[in-house]
Design a protein around this nucleic acid. Sequence first.
DNA 1: ATGCAAAATTTCAATGCATGAAATTCGTTT
DNA 2: AAACGAATTTCATGCATTGAAATTTTGCAT
Lengths: 199, 199
Amino acid sequence: MVGLRERKKQRTRRALIEAALRLFSEKGYEETTLAEIAAAAEVSTRTFFSYFAGKEDVLFYDSEQQIERALAYLAAPAPGQTPADLLRDFIEDTLSTSDDGRESWSEQSTLRLELIMREPPLQARALHLLFDSQLRLAAALSAAFPGRLDRVEAAAAVGSLIGAVKLAVMTTLIDGLPVEQARDAARRAADVAVHGLPR
Amino acid sequence: MVGLRERKKQRTRRALIEAALRLFSEKGYEETTLAEIAAAAEVSTRTFFSYFAGKEDVLFYDSEQQIERALAYLAAPAPGQTPADLLRDFIEDTLSTSDDGRESWSEQSTLRLELIMREPPLQARALHLLFDSQLRLAAALSAAFPGRLDRVEAAAAVGSLIGAVKLAVMTTLIDGLPVEQARDAARRAADVAVHGLPR
DNA sequence: ATGCAAAATTTCAATGCATGAAATTCGTTT
DNA sequence: AAACGAATTTCATGCATTGAAATTTTGCAT
């Protein structure tokens, strides 16, 4: 499993991701072609598609792992923990994990977020991935509370929480506010979702 | 404004929409080309793009009007009405408006929904449009309760409500349940968003 | 009615994403 | 080192999208 072949594939994958991120940032998303990305990673254009399904997907290379992490979290409530508790903890956990110390990672992560926010096709792709993941999370939540949360309630709960956080965070980012404010907004939004709308 | 020119444009627009919907349903979304749609509407392929921004957009021809209707609704709360009341009424109003009696409309509407649910690029486009509209709705809601709902709270409220309804409805539709059940799910989801998560 | 100007459409050409199939190179296995 | 399979490249093609120039259609003034 750790033969040369595997290592080479991982290196190519990395090269494609980094070339794409760099070129997108330098010259813009639309303006960089797949041919340029492939050339920068020293593979043929065709090979790009054996690593990623399309031009947009190269920026979402880690979405599946993130989803699985979230699924694992929701699948294992502590004894006595209510759905509301679990979901609130989940948000808190996600927010604290996101300020992961590493320098270079955080910078790439910021670049990527800016790109996704700026480019409509990337935004659409991100929303679609997020939506699909919510369906899976809802199923997991319902399964984690058998007999207590039916599929519709679980879907409503997950949709409400993520919908609130998503829109609140995006609102602060559009206003150009810094990441800490976005984090605050996320917490306030989670409160709204957990406790109900302001009266 | 109601000259021959305008009427002709509207007719062409309709022809494109109907041709697209028919062909998409008959042969599938990917399988029908813009050239075929244009031919069926008796215009050149290039002309398609002076009516719609892209292949996907032809199915979302009425999104702007729907958004404006929603914006108008949220901009004018009755005296004494709380944000929660207003949002709940908004959902209820939307649900009852949606079973608009007309036969042919409802059929086209169903076809369109099925297409959007089945085709990933259409789903992504729909989610993106919905997201943008939520940003506008949140701004309107915040403006409708000046001093009472800041931008973040309004965003959280709108995101929570629409997020809950969206995911709950989609869950029922994926399960193949009929529209009435989807309506019920929407109401239950709205309750979850308005009152908070199940405890 | 006739002709002019603006608006809309068509024609033409080019680019880039995406995909299938055949040919080739490369890593692994024996 | 030969054979096998996986990965890559090459080649060919379809389709969406866009710009620019040429042409047609429409509204309007004379």
